[in-house]
Design a protein around this nucleic acid. Structure first.
Length: 115
DNA sequence: AAGGTGACAGTTT
DNA sequence: TAAACTGCCACCT
């Protein structure tokens, strides 16, 4: 539906992909951005997450981490440890703000969804 | 209307 | 080898 370019079109797209992330899995901003066709807008993906708070349905922003598997945006949550707690609650092992076995937990929309 | 910012990523020194 | 800088696109003031 592209009848009109609603402001935040990118946001909504990002939310849709993040909502498709299975529990216990994580993805990177670049992967999402690339899936949207805006691989260079990886920063924007994180920005969208910033607004994801209060968005319905809830967006599992805690499943989105940076390329390093580091919880770069945990500080933006309700409280810094919220992101880690949420990930651990889903079975994701987080150590030192870092997702353990990140590559195994990595969920690539381009690969998993594979269009 | 224009400029600055940003939860990153890739490249270079 | 590791560390630092630039580039990027869209949102926000």
């Amino acid at each position: 539906m592209d009848a009109k370019r609603n402001t935040g079109e990118f946001f909504d797209l990002v939310y849709a992909v993040v909502r498709e992330i299975p529990e216990g899995r994580v993805t990177s901003y670049g992967a999402i951005a690339r899936y949207l066709g805006a691989a260079r807008s990886s920063r924007m993906v994180g920005f969208a997450m910033n607004a994801s708070f209060g968005v319905t349905p809830a967006v599992p922003a805690h499943r989105v981490v940076n390329r390093n598997g580091l919880l770069s945006g945990k500080m933006h949550f309700e409280y810094p440890d919220a992101m880690q707690e949420l990930l651990e609650a889903e079975g994701v092992v987080v150590k030192n703000d870092q997702v353990q076995d990140f590559e195994s937990r990595f969920w690539d929309p381009n690969t998993e969804l594979a269009l």
